[in-house]
Design a protein around this nucleic acid. Structure first.
Length: 429
RNA sequence: GGAGAGGUGGCUGAGUGGUCGAAAGCGACGGAUUGCUAAUCCGUUGAGUGGGGACCAUCCCUGCUCCGAGGGUUCGAAUCCCUCCCUCUCCGCCA
């Protein structure tokens, strides 16, 4: 949610921001309705003041034992007028908020302009793509050969886009998650959280998932709860309606959750294997920060996510998203893209995003500054990291010619000492 | 799932239709005092939004809204009615 004062004071800036993100919210209608509402509100408040004063007068009269029938009759007319005004105000407010939730956050000033991902800018690169003396295979081939990835079985259970990991594959996923959580909690100062994986609509709205991405969400028939598309949803709403003590900031949280995404319209495009799936595990990083420290915190958070890739020895690049590729609620986003030699592409494994106070305004999360005044916090988050694509990068980067996969050194303790993944034996009882 | 109790300001907790935005305590902040790592006393202390004033930041005056959320009754509601949400207790069920 943008500050409505910004909409009134600098509509041109907001209009540019909407256009830069390729959105179509009707700012003009909002401005017109806002003006109308405020005029009505002024009149309504005069009515209220009259009613309040009259009420006090009646109370006084009753106390003194006087009859107040005359005053009461007079107020009845004012009351009718008040009611009518209130109705018009309510109608205006309903429409105002419908427009407002569709107005995206403004991109930070220095974000490159661009229509879509073609306008993104690579700003950093770490390591080198691994060289192979043989043509590296894609993870789906490696996974099938090792019997650690079963796409067909997942399809039978839930449909395509729901892969099954088995044996060392499942273990690899668990090892990676464990490794990431230990790193973030023990070295990076994040507090681990185990949150609900279903959410009401409001927390989704706070994150900017609804209304824009509602069609991308799974929802339960009974109860109407949404399956979270990312751990960002529960974490960002952890302090809903609270005024935090300024001294506690920044608050850093991490969580491992499943993520559910319908990925409507994405079928058939870059979706093979584990590249794009409907359910996946992800370690999320989330920070509540003071406004003045949030830019630094974003870089720090990005660094925490990068550290995972470095320790795994995976080559990656950092991309600064342009305006057209920024998410609805984001001000600035750095994507971390890991190199997957088998599929020959960089895959996004994390989006470190600063939201300013956009989400905090919707989630009503504030803090007290040294002067004691409540102010909205800044929120930021990023993956640390998404598991399927990290698995892809590990499998494809550490593959050998015989189809086996070396376990990255950092993961060996988490794999129970296993140093190399060889074809899985089916174990029968 | 069934029955009951309850949701009030940073916290605890009074308040059952009329100067209640709301007692009291705690905490916090400011001040006073005291030489013994603290006590005592005094004062201030919810949020949002609009208007006016001022050495227009840190201020002052003032209107309106907010006592879980949303409706309703009434001249007037924290207080009465309805719906929903949440918490707690007991029972049932259950990993």
């Amino acid at each position: 949610m943008l500050d409505v004062r910004l909409l009134r004071a600098e509509p041109e800036r907001v209009r540019e921001g909407i256009a830069a993100k390729g959105e179509t919210a009707d700012l003009d209608r909002w401005l017109r309705l806002d003006r109308e509402r405020r005029e009505l509100l002024a009149e309504w408040e005069r009515c209220r003041a009259e009613l309040n004063a009259g009420g006090a007068e009646i109370a006084r009269a009753k106390k003194e034992g006087r009859d107040a029938a005359e005053e009461i009759a007079a107020l009845r007319a004012v009351k009718a007028r008040e009611k009518e005004l209130k109705g018009r105000i309510d109608a205006a407010e309903t429409e105002l908020s419908e427009i407002l939730v569709r107005i995206p956050n403004l991109p930070a000033e220095d974000v490159p302009r661009g229509p879509d991902e073609s306008g993104n800018v690579e700003i950093a690169r770490w390591g080198e793509p691994r060289e192979f003396a043989f043509p590296p295979r894609a993870h789906w081939d490696l996974g099938a050969g090792l019997r650690i990835l079963d796409l067909r079985a997942g399809g039978e259970i839930a449909g395509s886009g729901f892969p099954v990991l088995k044996g060392a594959g499942a273990r690899l996923e668990r090892a990676l998650a464990q490794f990431m959580l230990d790193l973030h909690t023990e070295r990076h100062g994040y507090t681990e959280v185990s949150p609900p994986h279903l959410s009401r609509a409001d927390p989704m709205v706070a994150c900017g998932q609804i209304p824009k991405l509602e069609a991308d969400m799974y929802r339960c028939d009974r109860g109407g709860l949404y399956l979270i598309p990312t751990g960002e949803v529960p974490l960002t709403n952890l302090h809903r309606g609270e005024i935090l003590e300024g001294g506690r900031l920044p608050l850093r949280y991490t969580t491992l959750t499943p993520c559910y995404r319908r990925e409507a319209g994405a079928a058939g495009k870059d979706t093979r294997g584990l590249i794009r799936v409907h359910q996946f595990q992800k370690v999320e990083l989330m920070v509540f920060a003071r406004p003045e420290e949030s830019e630094d915190e974003l870089l720090r958070l990005r660094g925490c996510a990068e550290e995972v890739l470095r320790r795994l020895g995976l080559h990656y690049r950092v991309v600064l998203l342009c305006t057209g590729d920024l998410s609805f609620a984001g001000r600035r986003t750095f994507d971390l893209e890991v190199w997957a030699p088998g599929v020959g592409r960089y895959l996004e494994v994390s989006s470190a995003t600063g939201f300013g106070d956009f989400q905090a305004r919707r989630a009503d999360t504030r803090f007290r500054d040294p002067g004691g005044k409540p102010r909205y916090v800044h929120t930021l988050n990023g993956s640390g990291l998404a598991l399927p694509r990290t698995i892809i990068a590990v499998m494809e980067s550490y593959q050998r010619e015989d189809g086996s996969i070396d376990v990255p050194e950092a993961l060996i303790p988490y794999m129970g000492g296993l140093t190399r993944i060889r074809p899985e034996e089916d174990r029968h009882e």
